[in-house]
Amino acid sequence: MESNEFITEEQQDLLKELANIGVGNAVTALSSMLEDQKINMAVPEVMVAPLQDVPDSFGDPENLVAATYCEAECPVMGLVLVLVLPFEAAQKMVERILPDDSSDSNEMAQSLLMELGNIITGAYLNALSFMTGLTFQASPPRLGIDMAGAVMGTVIAETKTVDDQLILLKTELNVEDNGIDGSVLILPDSGSLKTLFEHLGTF
């Protein structure tokens, strides 16, 4: 981790702490849906990367993933939160949570994945509100199942970022004994970081 012209080392630490608390809340919620199964959470990474390199940072861009996408905003800033699960992990998660008699319902599986996105977003935003004093409105989650590269490209396009360098927060999760892994990504809208740091600084 290095300071650069976009973000100082201290600011990166602040973002990591935010991700740590927010995603930590989310993991607790997720764990209770999985009958208190232990979920491991990696130390959040702050990625400062050229836009071009972001889609490839999730492995093979043609790998199939299930992603839920939520936008959150308050009057002074916005961000998007994305839960990315490899397709097999998403399938395992659904099988684990849904009762067997609903196994014929693809619609139910999709609702469940969106609900997971919702839970993670809500938990993260609670932490963010607590730390900044800002109140966020979150959009209903949207689900996309497709190539990792296509999903990430679409997410970046939806943030309408104009910058050639992106800052994003990535926290990897895995469910013990289950082989379910995934990542939570947080992308602040371009221009939002400055506002965020101002609010964190004054609180």
């Binding site: 889609p55 861009p61 497709d146 590269g149 296509a150 490209g153 679409t154 396009a157």
Partner: peptide
């Protein structure tokens, strides 16, 4: 080649 065109 370009991989993974979504809305792009």
């Amino acid at each position: 080649v370009t991989f993974g065109l979504g809305s792009c």
